[in-house]
């Protein structure tokens, strides 16, 4: 909780400091920034939830009018046949696919109960993180000063320099990550609109783009997590449509419901982000060579998985600054 509160306050600190310089009140600046952020999250969640509900309602009406079971069964048979033409897959028993889905729905309802408990826990953690963030934002500079006073006289000036540099690097890195996430969101939205122009019939485009951008903050897993809602919406919107079912990517590879088109679009966005946007924005903000960023991501991922990848670059940035200062200290130890 404290780590997340620290990360949030590091991201929001420049904004609060800037606002304070305009309205000359720290408390009011923290209040305005926090309320704006909470409002933005609530508006996003509310419109996302209402959009999802509308989508679900349309989907359920589609099921009633078009005969969901028949469509799904014929779809399964067609998919099986289409795939068999191109790939060797073991036989799928498509006849009882509807009964399997019924069982799955039962499981989902059971899981919903445990989900309610998890959501409760999440809300508690979110509120605690929010409170810690507000306290840190309001008293950040005083808090830092009270920590700094424990540094011995001999290392005091060097310690201040080190803290300032590390703080600067971490803040730049986090802002770089946010910029990269925004660029993924924008590129995804553009990509989805392009797919719509070719007849993909996707809705909730902006929300899917924002989710893809946010998911991008978690390396490796994130990009795929961003893809899923788009595929789900494409299937829900196009079920029963012959044209969507028989759609072919580049008029050669079968891509029912534009699934392959969506995957390809997200892969292109990811490639642009990984090879162009992130190394430039994130790599430069921490002052680390793009190659080192990639090696750090690999090491972090191998050691502690996705979380390791998320923390790899700021950790490398901190290590670089600390290493540079230690080298400087060892060269000039006689001066302390």
């Amino acid at each position: 909780m404290l780590i997340f509160a620290f990360l949030f306050s590091t991201i929001l600190l420049p904004l609060v400091d800037h606002l304070e310089s305009q309205i000359k009140s720290r408390a009011l600046s923290v209040l305005i920034v926090t309320i704006s952020l909470i409002s933005a999250i609530i508006i996003f969640l509310k419109s996302f939830a209402s959009g999802m509900l509308r989508q679900a309602r349309e989907f359920s009406s589609q099921i009633e009018t078009k005969g969901y079971a028949e469509n799904l069964n014929s779809l399964a048979v067609r998919l099986e046949l289409a795939l068999k033409k191109h790939v060797n897959i073991p036989d799928i028993d498509s006849s009882n696919i509807v009964s399997k889905i019924n069982d799955m729905v039962g499981d989902i309802i059971q899981n919903l109960v445990s989900l309610a408990g998890t959501i409760g826990g999440f809300i508690f953690t979110a509120i605690m993180v929010l409170i810690f963030t507000i306290i840190l934002l309001a008293n950040y500079h005083e808090f830092k000063k009270s920590l700094v006073q424990f540094i011995p006289n001999k290392y005091f000036e060097m310690g201040l320099r080190l803290i300032f540099n590390v703080e600067h690097q971490v803040s730049n890195y986090l802002q770089g990550q946010l910029l990269a996430a925004s660029s993924v969101a924008i590129m995804s939205i553009i990509g989805l609109y392009i797919l719509n122009a070719t007849g993909a019939n996707l809705t909730l485009v902006v929300f899917i783009g924002i989710i893809a951008g946010l998911a991008n903050l978690i390396p490796l897993v994130g990009p795929f997590a961003g893809m899923l809602p788009a595929i789900l919406v494409a299937v829900m919107n196009n079920i029963g449509s012959e044209a969507a079912l028989s759609h072919q990517l580049f008029s050669t590879v079968p891509s029912p419901f534009y699934i392959l088109d969506i995957i390809l679009m997200f892969l292109i966005v990811q490639q642009i982000d990984n090879n162009l946007v992130t190394p430039i924005l994130v790599g430069e903000s921490v002052g680390i060579h793009p190659l080192v960023v990639m090696i750090a991501l690999l090491i972090g991922g191998t050691l502690i998985g996705p979380l390791g990848m998320l923390l790899a670059v700021p950790a490398t940035g901190i290590l670089k600054v600390v290493g540079r200062e230690i080298m400087f200290l060892t060269r000039n130890a006689h001066l302390l």
Partner: peptide, 9 residues
């Protein structure tokens, strides 16, 4: 502070 040490303030 010593002479030639980095100055911070």
């Amino acid at each position: 502070f010593k002479r030639h040490a980095p100055g911070e303030g």
